[in-house]
Amino acid sequence: MNIALLIQAAMRYSAPVLLAAVGALFCDCAGVTFIILEAQMLLGCFFAVIAGYYFQSWAAGVLCAVLASILLGWFFVWITMKMKAIELVVGFAINFLIDGLTIYLLRMVFHQTGSFVSPEIPAIPRITVPVLSQIPLIGNLFYQQTWIVYFAFLSVLIAAVLIYHTSFGLHILSSGANPEAAKAVGIHIGQTRIQCIMIASVLCGLAGSQLSIGFLSMFSEGMTVGKGFIALGALMFSNRKPALVLFITLLFGFAEAIGNQVQLSGTIASELVLMIPYLAVLACVFVKKPIPEQI
């Protein structure tokens, strides 16, 4: 097994999950039960492909993916905050809705079923960081990835600083832990939560773009295969610590990379192999103690 290829694949696989998990981290800290990451990623996948294809530009694809995800985020905001619906229920409904909607649109727009593959779908260019990629072993981290992958890893750092070292972070944490306290000192809880949802929406849009035009340049039905939920699992495991979010998503990435290599060797049934990353995350969540109850 080629270590360099494995590391590169693991980074590629973990990036979308990581982006979604960081988005979920913001929402969780702010006290929003935000489970539509999966739907936002899937919608992002779809629009990245569709816009990329029509405008013949990966940038347009990414932009549309992010916009679509933001729009869905606003829909969630409207229905939960303005219409006072329950976040969890709305979340489930949206996840199912988008799953069906992308399949429907795929048939209506491309007259395709199952998946849409075309050499005319543009891909996000791969970047090799000049000097850093020359370092032995570590260099693999900076070799032939899209900017979204690099940004995903950077986003963990940004989240850690924003949430735990700025006043915006204090607003987020207080909105989540004791909204009354936040309100009493004049913090606008609704705004803070909307800001967090928007951050998550942008990150999920990027994650979707990476999944569809960052690597494969195709769209297939339900191609996120639960990555949004894996992100939620990673978040639960992390106890809101960004470093642990990074750890578990990387674990997922490695498990998927190894799984794919095993699959290629063809010795084990592929259905079993496909379970590996999910089992790995599940095991982690089981091992971990639950977050101590907040007063």
Binding site: T166, S167, L170, H171, L173, S174, A177, N178, E180, A181, A182, K183, A184, V185, G186, I187, Q294, I295
Partner: peptide, 21 residues
């Protein structure tokens, strides 16, 4: 407030500067 408007999971200092960092 009667039921203190403090965030239990934050420190005293963090709570103090919540309104004005």
């Amino acid at each position: 407030h009667q039921h203190f408007a403090l965030v239990p999971t934050l420190t005293v200092t963090q709570n103090m500067i919540l309104g004005r960092p």
